[in-house]
């Protein structure tokens, strides 16, 4: 009964202040649209960076002079790193394997036949659990006597560092941007709702005069905000769907082969989930926007 009344009051107000309601809806639309364009892009970039991060691995070269015992000891240390979670795994590449790989890569493998002996050292190929752990792996085994004196440990330090910096930047910049967008949207919607409250100032005054509790006053306004937020979100989602089908999917199918060739495994948020998030965001924006704005009018 009371919920029904709150809805009636909210609808009454939307009708009475049609221009303001449209303004609030359009504000929500713009905010949700920008959010809806940004979230998938951000998640795609993040996923791409993560995929690259997974490729950072460490090559631990073994000296030809190392004894079997020494190599086993090194393997033991790697096993320890694996059990404590620093690395996710490692593989042994023997001298012969290394030569075979080299042979595959060369355009003219016959040059290798000229070699008197196999110059390639054996190695452990180590995959750190996290790209950040590469340094820890190096620190743990860099003094091992079994290491090859010239090659030692090789890993793309600069690549790893740059990737990490990029990943962190993408992450924080993304969160900051989403935060700023949300705050801006809340303020915009709040401002629009404030117009509506100014228009209904007298009504709020009378409500307080006759002893309405603050929540009683708030509900119709919050429902009004939620309705505008939802309406804006639905239109924004429809527009985003159009853009996804018309532009992004078409472009992606064209670029698809190129992407798979480079082995990109980057993915992004699914559209149904995105819709859910955006519609939720629209509703929350409307409710919070009007809630915050009302606070000032409900003092005393």
């Amino acid at each position: 009964m009371r919920i029904g009344m709150f809805f009636r009051e909210a609808l009454r107000s939307i009708r009475a202040n049609a221009a303001i309601s449209v303004a609030a809806t359009v504000t929500a639309l713009i905010a949700v649209f920008i959010l809806g364009a940004f979230i998938p892009s951000f998640m795609y970039v993040r996923s791409a960076v993560d995929a690259q991060k997974a490729k950072v691995d460490v090559d631990v070269y073994i000296s030809d002079n190392a004894s079997i015992a020494q190599v086993n000891e090194l393997k033991g240390r790697l096993d320890t790193l694996k059990t404590d979670g620093t690395i996710s795994g490692f593989t042994y590449v023997s001298k012969d394997d290394a030569l075979k790989i080299m042979r595959d890569r060369l355009r003219d493998p016959s040059v290798l036949d000229q070699l008197p002996s196999n110059p390639l050292p054996a190695k452990f190929n180590v995959q750190p659990a996290e790209a950040e752990n590469a340094n820890a792996v190096v620190a743990a085994i860099k003094d091992d006597p079994a290491l090859d004196p010239t090659e030692g440990i090789v890993y793309p330090q600069t690549t790893a560092d740059r990737l990490l910096t990029a990943a962190k930047f993408v992450q924080w910049a993304g969160f900051a941007l989403i935060g700023i967008l949300l705050v801006a949207a809340i303020l915009l919607i709040g401002n629009t709702i404030r117009l509506s409250i100014f228009a209904r100032r007298r009504e709020v005054e009378v409500m307080r005069l006759v002893g309405a509790t603050n929540w009683f006053i708030r509900w119709p306004f919050m429902i009004e905000g939620v309705i505008c937020g939802l309406a804006g979100a639905v239109v924004a989602v429809a527009m985003l769907w159009g853009i996804k089908v018309g532009v992004v999917d078409a472009w992606a199918s064209g670029a698809d082969t190129a992407l798979t060739k480079t082995g990109s495994t980057a993915t992004t948020i699914g559209f149904p989930l995105l819709t859910l998030v955006l519609v939720g965001a629209g509703a929350v924006l409307g409710a919070v926007g009007s809630g915050i704005t009302l606070r000032r009018f409900l003092r005393i």
Binding site: L209, V210, G211
Partner: peptide, 18 residues
């Protein structure tokens, strides 16, 4: 405060009707 206001009826010069 709302409960106080319910226990007090108020009338003003400008009527304050909606």
């Amino acid at each position: 405060v709302p409960y106080l206001r319910r226990a007090i009826g108020c009338v003003f010069q400008d009527f304050r009707l909606l």
